[in-house]
């Protein structure tokens, strides 16, 4: 049994159905990526998995537990962390306060160790620990968003467009971080526009088009697939 199982998930905004029946699996320790154009339903899928949206139909099972009717704050407690699109750090709080909030779902216990490990991973954040998060650069905010998601000690990390709007150097750094996390055995569900980098990292990839999975398979295979190369990697 996979860690995360999604079966025939359907989600609608009002009368408009954004997800028209998606099924996918994430095994423990895998990196799985969802790629697709704008409006394909990638972000909607993640928001539904983390409970921000309510599905119309379908099942979401995580480690044997049904998530589809659970509230967002309870889903976090099951070990699903979601670093949202656009980073969404708390701008009026300091870097350290943002990280502490990441551990909110773990009642009690110390967070010092986790904060220290985030700082080891992202030394830039340690330099700015007392700074208001709203004053950080885009790349630093992305580090903070990932670090904050790690604070809950998740069993699965969902990253939504972590490279969006960043400089090439920053993008490289973020993908290196994801590779390190993968090497450390973290289960990751990654949504990316940067399909080549994402597929290169991923054990499994799913290609979404207008709310449906049109193609799936090992990341390396998708990378070689003609259709994928044409449509998402910009090659002729």
């Amino acid at each position: 049994m996979s860690l995360l199982e999604v079966r025939d998930l359907r989600v609608a905004y009002g009368a408009i159905e954004a997800i028209k029946g998606i099924s996918l699996d994430v095994e423990e320790g895998q990196v799985v990526t969802l790629i697709g154009t704008n409006g394909a339903g990638k972000t909607t899928t993640l928001r539904t998995l983390s409970g921000l949206l309510k599905p119309l139909a379908g099942e979401v099972t995580f480690d044997g537990k049904r998530l589809d009717s659970m509230k967002a704050h309870d889903i976090v407690k099951q070990g699903v962390a979601h670093s949202p699109e656009g980073r969404r750090i708390f701008p009026l709080m300091t870097v350290e306060e943002n990280l502490e909030l990441g551990a909110y779902s773990r009642k009690g216990g110390t967070t010092g160790e986790d904060v220290a490990s985030v700082f080891t991973r992202f030394p830039r954040l340690e330099e700015r620990r007392a700074q208001k998060a709203g004053t950080l650069s885009g790349g630093e905010q992305q580090m903070l968003a990932i670090g904050r998601a790690l604070m809950s000690r998740p069993r699965m990390l969902m990253l939504d467009e972590p490279s969006m709007g960043l400089s090439p150097i920053m993008i490289q750094l973020i993908f290196e971080t994801i590779a390190e996390l993968k090497a450390a055995g973290t289960t990751i569900l990654l949504v990316e526009q940067n399909a080549s980098a994402a597929l290169a990292l991923a054990d499994v990839g799913y290609v979404l088009e207008t709310g449906r999975v049109v193609l799936s398979g090992p990341g390396k295979d998708l990378l070689k697939d003609d259709k994928v190369r044409k449509a998402y990697l910009g090659e002729d």
Partner: peptide, 22 residues
């Protein structure tokens, strides 16, 4: 802890939920 959660909810309710805040 609850006070922090209040601040977080005020700044960004959706993301606050992703932190596990009810």
């Amino acid at each position: 802890r609850t006070g922090r959660a209040m601040q977080a909810t005020a700044q960004d309710p959706d993301t606050a939920r992703l932190m596990g805040i009810d």
